[in-house]
C-alpha cells in the first residue's frame, strides 16, 4: 500500500494524529479519499468540491505531479506521498 506522509500542519487537525498512514489505492486520488474516509476532519483541507485544494502541494516519491493530473497519478506499493498544506508562521 502507498504511504501518506502527514506533516505537523495536518496532524494537528486529525482527531488521532499519525505522521504516516498506509492506505489502499493505486492513484493519489484513491489514497487521499481513503485518508479522508478514516479522517473526515481533513476533507475540507484536502478537497474543494471533490477537487484537490489548489494550494495543497502533493509529492509522490519526491517528485511533483502536475497539479491538474495529480489525483490521477499512479502510486504503487511503498510509494511515499507527501502532503504539504500552505503555512505562514513567522
Amino acid at each position: 500500500m502507498p504511504k501518506l506522509i502527514i506533516p505537523a500542519a495536518l496532524r494537528g487537525r486529525m482527531n488521532h494524529p499519525q505522521d504516516e498512514v498506509e492506505v489502499p489505492g493505486t492513484t493519489v486520488g484513491d489514497a487521499l479519499r481513503a485518508l479522508t474516509k478514516d479522517h473526515p476532519e481533513l476533507q475540507d483541507i484536502l478537497f474543494v468540491d471533490d477537487q484537490l485544494h489548489p494550494s495543497l502541494r502533493i509529492f509522490v516519491d519526491d517528485q511533483a505531479p502536475a497539479p491538474e493530473q495529480c489525483l490521477a497519478t499512479t502510486v504503487k506499493e511503498g510509494s511515499e506521498v507527501v502532503l504539504l498544506p500552505p503555512i505562514a508562521g513567522g
Binding site: P7, A8, A9, R11, G12, L84, I87, A88, G89, G90
Partner: peptide, 8 residues
C-alpha cells in the same frame, strides 16, 4: 514559513 514542528 513554519507551523508547529513543520518548516518550509
Amino acid at each position: 514559513p513554519m507551523y508547529d514542528s513543520d518548516a518550509y
